[in-house]
């Protein structure tokens, strides 16, 4: 059980945090937990199957929009799980055409799709006469924090379980060589669709959580492509072959963001861009990959 110890310790730390009453710390941890959840879910398709998505924000945004639309009608403990269902169904619905495209085209397709949905939602909101919505009576930070902790843990568990399952092995085979994977009996279409659907689920709730946290909704904000970019960079820096990677990546970026964002958000993004390039060129398997290689050589 030694491998699980750091996770359990981390879980304990996160769990005890709200008791400190330090709102700033809780807020930062909340942000960290949401990024962990987003990056872990991203890994399911993009890390394991190699279908790198630059449009993960679309699930985040749609989930958030759903929660915002049903605010006041449904309590959060119903609308959040429903948001997950909505994004899951959406992903499955579009999976047939979307997953036919592979490689770099998939990357830009996901980006284009997210932007498309963003502009549609903007048009809908504009048509409804809404230019930014205020949410009243949102849950407390502590409540949102616990939910975020739950979702981050769940996302990590799901990634962990799938990594070891036949589904995970099949997805990895697809990443390595899709045609060969098909030739050895991996049901590629089915597996990719499952991974895509699963990767969409938790981000739906996370989107709802963020909307509730900021108590404000604006399509440009919640469908911001920088979110997709951050998740992707997070996964590449941390490494996406096992569950530690997304956590490391998310932690690193949250730390960086806390240091820089308030003073110079552009500097933060410039740094992110540089890091992305550096890691893609030199360390494509991320920090975790580096650690694994060091361990293998030792």
């Amino acid at each position: 059980m030694t491998k699980a110890t750091p996770f359990l310790l981390g879980l304990l730390c996160f769990g005890l945090l709200p008791l400190t009453g330090q709102d700033y710390l809780i807020g930062v941890s909340f942000t960290l937990l949401t990024w962990i959840a987003l990056t872990q879910s991203w890994t399911l398709l993009s890390g394991f199957a190699g279908y790198i998505s630059l449009g993960h924000v679309v699930f985040f945004g749609l989930g958030g929009y759903f929660v915002v639309l049903t605010w006041g009608i449904l309590p959060y403990w119903i609308s959040l799980p429903l948001a997950c269902l909505v994004t899951f169904v959406f992903a499955i619905a579009i999976s047939i055409p979307v997953l036919r495209v592979s490689g770099p085209y998939f990357v830009i397709l996901t980006f284009g799709l997210a932007e498309f949905v963003k502009y549609v939602v903007m048009a809908v909101e504009s048509h409804l006469g809404q230019f930014g919505r205020l949410l009243l009576g949102v849950p407390s930070l502590a409540t949102l924090y616990w939910l975020a902790l739950f979702l981050a843990t769940l996302a990590t568990l799901i990634t962990f379980v799938i990594r070891r399952s036949r589904l995970g092995q099949g997805l990895i085979a697809i990443r390595e060589n899709e045609q060969a994977a098909e030739a050895i009996g991996v049901p590629v279409t089915r597996y990719k669709t499952i991974a895509y659907g699963l990767s969409a689920t938790i981000p739906g709730a996370i989107g709802g959580l963020i909307a509730l946290r900021t108590s404000y909704f604006e399509p440009q904000q919640i469908f911001d492509p920088v979110v997709s970019f951050t998740v992707l960079t997070s996964a590449i820096i941390g490494g996406s072959d096992d569950v530690r990677g997304p956590i490391l990546g998310a932690a690193f970026l949250t730390l960086l963001s806390e240091l820089l964002w308030a003073r110079a958000p552009q500097l933060y993004l410039i740094l992110l861009g540089i890091l992305l390039i550096v890691f893609v060129v030199i360390l494509p398997n991320g920090i975790c990959g580096l650690l694994r290689r060091r361990a293998a050589q030792a």
């Binding site: 092995q169 060589n177 045609q179 994977a181 030739a183 050895i184």
Partner: peptide, 30 residues
């Protein structure tokens, strides 16, 4: 192709397509 494989057909490719980042053993296990 994957269903045909499950019916009992195995094939090799003209240019080898190993699961490059996996070990030899992992290729076969998969």
């Amino acid at each position: 192709p994957d269903r045909i494989c499950r019916r009992g057909v195995g094939r090799t490719f003209q240019t080898a397509r190993p699961f490059g980042d996996l070990t030899v053993l992992e290729n076969i296990i998969t």
